[in-house]
């Protein structure tokens, strides 16, 4: 790690004013599980670290008839253990406990999970977010892209969005709240993720001096919701595909669906095609299969990741069938 100065603001306003107005000079320290690795690998090298863990306003989980509010500093362990979340948002609790390891769940925060940087091995080896070698060759298309995107990969960004809990949060129609020098704003969570087109952009709609303050989820949905991950190792492994679905039912037919895939594109990937395929259909093997096919219809695998099309398809199908049979395991 390069040297840096360390500040621990106690209010959101202090934190915002301690951050720099452009990327590079400052970084926000929350759980640190990703940031310290990035700093050790010299992927980011802030001159100032703004530790936000002493900001009380960023803590806490509360449920009310208006919905669920989770402070930015909520840890994954808090998410997994919270009785209200387990009862009312069980697919979120399940996604949280499926994430990483107990040690990481004790450290990693919700905001950090949303803002973590891609696991792309070119990015992590210092070749950039849109990886090129020093002569300008694009590396992913010609290289080992077995873990890269199969959707949304037409531009130079070929990494996959790394959060495993974001798809299910999007299925729950979560919104993210941010605070910066220009004040507060709120976004549907899916809008927080963007596909960068140049190396000086990041993959989040987040200003360098903005902080994530909280995530809110609407009241307990009248929907069947499930999360499904395909991992090679049993636990503590980055998934190969993630799917989350929320199915609003009318009788035995699907009235509307939200279908979100993770680990397939540079952003969490919502699939209107799959949603359409399920709408007004009963829930069974056949419709789940059709929706799964629709979800990957436009997939454009790279040279080494065609198998991920199959895995994404399976993840979507299994998530739908899991939701149909009652959601979280």
């Amino acid at each position: 790690m390069r040297p840096f100065e360390y500040v621990s603001p106690t209010t959101k306003a202090q934190a915002v004013s301690l951050l720099g107005a452009s990327w590079g000079g400052t970084e926000i320290l929350a759980g640190g599980t990703d940031l310290l690795a990035l700093m050790k690998d010299d992927i980011v090298s802030p001159k100032r670290l703004v530790n936000i863990k002493n900001i009380r306003d960023l803590r806490g989980i509360s449920s009310s008839p208006q919905g669920l509010r989770m402070g930015a500093l909520t840890t994954l362990a808090d998410l997994a253990d919270d009785a209200g979340i387990k009862k009312n948002y069980p697919a979120l609790a399940e996604a949280a406990i499926e994430a990483a390891s107990p040690q990481i769940r004790n450290m990693a925060t919700l905001a950090g999970n949303l803002c973590q940087r891609p696991r792309c091995w070119y990015f992590r080896n210092g070749f950039g977010l849109l990886p090129k070698d020093e002569t300008g060759n694009e590396l992913v298309a010609d290289g080992d892209n077995r873990y890269h995107a199969i959707l949304g990969n037409e531009g130079p960004a070929k990494f996959v969005s790394p959060s495993t809990i974001v798809p299910v949060l999007i299925a729950y129609e979560a919104k993210i709240r941010l605070e910066g020098p220009k004040g507060k704003r709120e976004l549907p969570l899916e809008k927080f993720f963007v596909i960068p087109k140049s190396e000086n952009e990041r993959e989040h709609d987040l200003g360098p001096n903005e902080i994530v303050t909280e995530v809110v989820v609407p009241p307990v949905p009248n929907a069947k919701i499930a999360h499904y991950e395909i991992r090679q190792k049993d636990v503590f492994d980055w998934p190969l595909a993630v799917a989350a679905v929320a199915l609003k039912m009318q009788g035995s037919n699907v009235e509307s669906a939200r279908i979100v895939m993770g680990y397939v594109a540079p952003v969490p990937w919502m699939s209107p095609e799959a949603e359409q395929a399920l709408t007004a259909q009963p829930l069974d093997q056949e419709t789940a299969q059709k929706a799964a096919e629709a979800a990957v219809k436009d997939a454009k695998p790279l040279s080494h990741n065609e198998y991920k099309v199959q895995l994404a398809r399976v993840a979507v199908k299994r998530a739908i069938l899991k939701a149909a049979s009652g959601g979280a395991a």
Partner: peptide, 20 residues
């Protein structure tokens, strides 16, 4: 190994997977 850069891509314990 990456064909273009000649570097090992998984010189860590997240993608050099050991059985857990």
């Amino acid at each position: 190994m990456d064909p273009t850069t000649g570097r090992m891509l998984n010189a860590n314990l997240e993608f050099y997977r050991l059985a857990g």
